[in-house]
Nucleic acid binder design. Sequence first.
DNA 1: ATCGGAAATGGAAACGTTTCCAGCGCTTCC
DNA 2: GGAAGCGCTGGAAACGTTTCCATTTCCGAT
Lengths: 355, 355
Amino acid sequence: MDAFPVTYGVPVDDLTASRAPSKVTLVDIARLAGVGVGTASRALSNAKNVAPATRARVLRVAEEHNYVVSPEASRLAKGNTGRVALVVPHLSRWFFGSVVEGLDSVLREAELDVLLYQVGDARDRRDFFDRLPARRKVDAVVVVGFQVEDDERTRMETMGVHIVAAGGQSAAYPSVHIDDYEASRQAVDHLLHLGHTRIGMLEAVDPDQPNLSATRSPAYYDALERAGIPADPTLVVTAPWGGEHGAASMGRLLGHAEPPTAVFAHSDEVALGAIRTLRRAGLRPGDDVSVVGIDDHPMAELTDLTTVRQRPVEQGVIAGRLVLDLLGGGVAPQASTTLPTELVVRGSTAPPLRR
Amino acid sequence: MDAFPVTYGVPVDDLTASRAPSKVTLVDIARLAGVGVGTASRALSNAKNVAPATRARVLRVAEEHNYVVSPEASRLAKGNTGRVALVVPHLSRWFFGSVVEGLDSVLREAELDVLLYQVGDARDRRDFFDRLPARRKVDAVVVVGFQVEDDERTRMETMGVHIVAAGGQSAAYPSVHIDDYEASRQAVDHLLHLGHTRIGMLEAVDPDQPNLSATRSPAYYDALERAGIPADPTLVVTAPWGGEHGAASMGRLLGHAEPPTAVFAHSDEVALGAIRTLRRAGLRPGDDVSVVGIDDHPMAELTDLTTVRQRPVEQGVIAGRLVLDLLGGGVAPQASTTLPTELVVRGSTAPPLRR
DNA sequence: ATCGGAAATGGAAACGTTTCCAGCGCTTCC
DNA sequence: GGAAGCGCTGGAAACGTTTCCATTTCCGAT
């Protein structure tokens, strides 16, 4: 990204120059159909109190002249935007793309438009909450995979903009997420059940998602403790999120005086990085060192990676429904939905070798 | 996805119920600042012909009262939408997510809003071009990774909506893409230079992207012919896109009476599926059978996959600039940009074993 | 026949901007 | 000293809907 500066020469104002030629308006349609504009509007918007014959005539005329309502005018008169903002840190990552996929399908079905906002870093994010919402461009905001600060949330609320979280928990607004602690426990318990006692962890931190690792490593420590195994902090390596960093971290573990026989990785991508390091070191994943991740990334299946499955598309779908609930105005939607995770055992984990 | 029906109980009309409480309008600001609405508008929109003192006063009052313009009203008066539609087949795939990432960064910088439309299959796509959605909601449409039919394009144009293609070529509208033929040639030539003479191909078809494989397999045949190697159609296996299908196709090749010593896969995901099959068959990728893909998916690096790199984020960025050009109205933008691809040699390819 | 009420209709007001146009006070130049 | 010009300003018109309200029409019931 950094290689491609995004500044561009055209002044913003000039962008307003182009214009659509389609000039047929509701008034035209009404005149052509021989009805008043009120009736024409009602006919087109499926309102009641329009005679079937009249409606048919209006619709036919509209069709013939390729009439389409002006969303601007319609929204202005109606007083709402019909739009929802999706705020996503990294679109190119499988997890986020999948959540958005789920969200999009539900929101489109409800005839809502989806406005996309990618907020890579904290600055982008500040920007978003400062500018857009304040601009009354949307009725609701869905944040994917991160938390909204209290002051940001307050501002949104005073503007009448709803907030929903997908792939991240919050007490302050409705959210859909997995139980990170539980997922991590499933992964570590699996290694324990296989008989491993020397278990490392590859912890990933994302400066923009500080709270994620915060629940995954405690689960690791707790699981070990419950199994009566003393935790060894030198077996926990922390690095930024991503396969490359996973690979490097695994390298550090291999350099340990007494290396682990199994490793719990923060995510599948991290785990796959670790596996590359193992292979390059001449070790067989699963046979020599067990590796388990979290996500069930499509690559996990292809690479025989044991993992804890979550379903991001489903998270998106449910978050989308929360948005509809909120916009429907009626029922107070369930504050928080926790989706189950599921251990998927593949070839990258096995009992430890006898020594 | 299919497990989660997207229909929802709230009638669309009811979604219009909620409303923003922020009721301070331009007229209020003008009154409070003691100026006319015209002047207030000019002051806020940075127009000229406003006395510095007046502008300052208006801005201060607006700030104090948390004034924000109504985009609906503004757009209605101005006559343009300030929005661009992104039409994408599969958001959760790395390639598409990355292109959108690039597009988003450029368009946001220009203060344009990005409307997302996911069109999984041909029906969705028809729908998109048929129904009003794009019609007057956007100033331009960017299609990612597929072609627009001629009649669809014509309709868009008569509505004054610009079209740009990212990750797919077209003669009819501006586009950014790689040279698929050349990329395929690079991959196959690499295998030939290593000394392979028995080279298979895993061809992927996507019902929604029919034209992709159309250029990759001809390149394969041509490269072999140029090397004086008779093509063997039984070494070309065609299947839907995806790792699972790649794995199955590789299985078929292994069952061949005289299996290939190297395989050119349509994409990295397909290649990784093939590699899983090789591993399960006890074969070492690179040593026993060479595999090369196309994309340089992040996983390629982690799995030591030789591949032909393309840069989807860059494609998105350039496509975004094309949109700005078009909207700027001035210069006719360059019709078509072909980005270079680059062979990246890793561990999955090596000279054939001596027999 | 007449009446009451529901259904259908036309028109106007409202939504909140931007932009055009005319006016007004100053300077500046004959 | 007057006319021309310029910078700034206020107000009105326009943008294209939706919705409210008053009116008309239609129908069955009395």
